[in-house]
Each structure stands twice: as C-alpha cells, then as structure tokens.
Amino acid sequence: MNVFRLTGDIAHLLAIILLLMKIWKTRSCAGVSGKSQMMFALVFTTRYLDLITNFISLYNTTMKMIFIASSYGTLYLMFLKFRATYDSNHDTFRMEFLVVPVAGLSFLVNHDFSPLEILWTFSIYLESVAILPQLFMISKTGEAETITSHYLFALGSYRALYILNWVYRFYFEGFFDLIAVVAGCVQTVLYCDFFYLYITKVWKGKKLTLPA
C-alpha cells in the first residue's frame, strides 16, 4: 500500500458515495447512465470473485464488499426505486459494442487461461471503457449536473492515481502488471476531455456544459 493507491481507492469510494448521494438527495437519477452503472456492477462482480478463493487483507475484503454492494445499490435506485427518473432516451450507447470485444480480448490477452483469471482480465478491460455510455450521454445532452461532474472527476482521478501507484510499485517493489497498466492508461485518457471541461468550468463555479 502506498499513498497513491490509498488516495486512489478513497477517490473511487468518494465517487461511488457522491453518485449514491446525488440520486438519494435529488430522488432522481436524471443524467446518469444506467448502462455505465450496469457495466460497473459487472466489473466488480467479475473482478472480486477472488473474495471466495483468496484472502488478501481486511482492507481489501472490506473495500471489495463495499464496491460490490454499492454498485448493486446504485442499480436498485436507478432501475427500481427511482426508475421513473431514469433518462433512458439519452442513454443510447450500445453496451454490446463494448462487452463483446472486451470479452473476446480477455480470452486472447490474459496472464493465465483460467476461468477466474479470464474474468479478472475481462473486468479490467471492461472497466477501462465502462464510462463511455456516461460520457456519450453528456455529449448528447450537452451538459451535466454539477454533482454528476464531481462524481466523474472523482472516478477519473482514481485511475489516474493508480497510474502513479503503478509507477511507484514498479520502482520500489518491482511490481508491474502490463494488463492493468495499459487498461488503466486507456481508462484515464478517456477522461482527459472531461477533466479539461471540469477544471475550466466547474472549478470556476459554472455548470458543466459542452461547447456548441
């Protein structure tokens, strides 16, 4: 554990809490992509199957359980409790365009051709692109609520902080996981445009809107 990974995990946790708070407080999931949230639930489910087979630490187990539970909690709020507020007309990204290629790639490029390892690889690849329906939704509507933009900033920061963690671990622990690093870099790059808008607009007190 190093400071980058810890702050990355905290940013990730903060993002999830922000999203749940937004939905709960406004009693609405307007502007949130149900498809991105479904894919995040799939990401956590396929990655954390090792909860059953492998104990790493109390911290690790607790965080994994929080991530899995909160992702299904978010789905519950979006698709059951506040279903009427779900903006499905703008959530039109085709999930199969991500899930199918990612599934294929996880069979082809992995550390070990075993069921758990393939599922772990699938989750890493899927996570890297799972935000695309959300970003697509914002580009369609041309704006995002400020709380949603804070959520996205925290979520994007998490993987950026993980990159620093991987640099640290490479130099100080000799640890290097090519699959995680490449996918993590792709994931972070996808946020760059959003980061720019967030810093130039939201940090100056304006709402996040896209240039016409």
Binding site: R5, N60, D112, E117, Y162, N165, F175
Partner: peptide, 10 residues
C-alpha cells in the same frame, strides 16, 4: 512477472 498474480489491487 508470473502469470495470474495475486491481484491485491482493487
């Protein structure tokens, strides 16, 4: 790195 590392990250 060996295959199927112990995935200790989240």
């Amino acid at each position: 790195a060996e295959a199927a590392e112990n995935h200790d990250e989240l």
